[in-house]
Simulated assay, not measured.
Amino acid sequence: MILYSFAKINLSLHLLGKRPDGYHEIETLMQTVDLADKITMTECKEGTTVTCSDPIVPSDERNLAYKAIDLIRSTYRITKTGIQVHIDKQIPVASGLAGGSGNAAMTLHGLNKIWSLGLSREQLMALAAKLGSDVPYCLFGGMARASGRGEKVTWLDVENPFYFILINPPIAVSSAWAYQHVKIDLTNPGACVSLMVSLLHDGDFDGLISHLHNDLELPVQSAFSAVREARGILADVGTMGVLMSGSGPTVFGILPDRSEAERTADLVRSRVSPQWRVFSVSSISQRAISLRCSLD
């Protein structure tokens, strides 16, 4: 079985405060884009094997896809069959694009089919929430708002096309570090995200761009010059709505159409070293993901 797990970007990310369980309460607006890892799953006689084309990705219990397999095994007492998973990694690791979360989400889908578990959408969501804050959203992707620690997801019935340039500098930013150093904004994040949702439904592209926000961006760009440089490059080449995604270090800019995005991506590549990864991507809907991965 072949599945694809897609990268996500945060069009808005507000932190409300720290919870008793150590997580932060958030309000966020997310969109999947057509940058994807290819996941090949094969049933075998016994055991669990996870491999990846990127050698820095762990292949043991530290891997979220591996954790997804263990969770399914323990929850449904599956012991008499094995599974092999290979991840062809295209999404940069630890980039603020939910690559690992997407791998885990699609592994859940794959196991549901391969082992004929018959799990409902609600059951998959409950399992995903045990694996990570972004995993429930990554099960279905598209445009959605999320709250709680990220596991409470409301999908939005909007399919406005967006085109993005992603710049991923060759640095690592710890999510834990970013959250520890954020200063909580006193504005009403729920109202901010609701306004963005309204702008999406109205097709107000300029209004949406003017309200892009990420509470984690200021501490990260203050500490990491590469993030500031990425932002500056995207502003210089004329992209709109420049913002860091998640806890970084990936920064995105919005373009009006695909041809302009591809042209601008080539221009950006000419300005950065080969170690920097630059992508021209477009939004992908929940329906398109479902069709691509045969999830229906």
Rank of each mutant, 00 (worst) to 15 (best):
P169K: 04
L139Q: 09
N188R: 06
G207M: 00
S133N: 05
C192K: 14
L216N: 04
S194P: 02
P136T: 15
F162M: 13
N168V: 02
L195Y: 02
H213V: 09
D157R: 04
T187L: 06
L139Y: 06
S174T: 10
E151C: 12
R149G: 10
I209S: 03
H181N: 13
L195E: 11
F162G: 03
L156D: 01
K183Q: 11
C138T: 14
G190V: 07
V153L: 08
L131D: 08
I209T: 10
L212F: 01
H181R: 13
N160T: 15
A129I: 14
G207N: 00
H201F: 13
P136E: 10
A178N: 08
S147A: 10
V193T: 11
I165P: 06
M125N: 06
E159G: 03
D185G: 07
A191V: 15
N168I: 00
F164C: 08
A178R: 09
A146E: 04
I209N: 03
E151W: 05
H213W: 07
A176H: 02
V153K: 05
I171T: 02
G141P: 03
G132H: 05
N188W: 05
F164Y: 06
G203R: 00
L212M: 08
R145L: 07
A146N: 02
K130A: 10
V173G: 08
M125L: 09
R145Q: 11
G141Y: 02
D202P: 01
L139M: 04
N214C: 07
H211N: 11
L212C: 10
